[in-house]
Amino acid sequence: MILDVAAVFGLAGAGAVGLGLFGMLANPRPLQKVLAFNLMGSGAFLMFGAVARRAAAPGLGPDPVPHAMVITGLVVSFAATALIVGLLLRLHAVSGSTSLKPQPGPRRAARSTPASKTSERGDAA
């Protein structure tokens, strides 16, 4: 079996998807879950790149359609990451924690009491 460029990086993409999936499931910290999810996405993009390489025409280079879709995908995944990071920072500002567990601790208290306003101001100042 000959490993060409497409196969090597396609396999690397498959590995990155597996690693990203594991990181997302096994790491309890939300920020690292987001990072692992990005890793998973980039693995999927790399596999798509391998597909584009397989469909290369002699003298024309690889298939441009997957390339355009990967570029679009990279920008969209950045936008999604920015939104989720914003949510995470807001959760931290309101509750003082980034835990995703439903807990009867500071998060509920912050939401139901007027103390939340002051804690926001305190954080923003």
Partner: peptide, 21 residues
């Protein structure tokens, strides 16, 4: 999951370059 995807990558056929052309 990774091994399954890897097997898919290796099983990819060499396709006719329709879209590039």
């Amino acid at each position: 999951v990774a091994l399954g995807l890897g097997a898919v990558v290796l099983a990819l056929p060499q396709v006719e370059p329709l879209q590039a052309v």
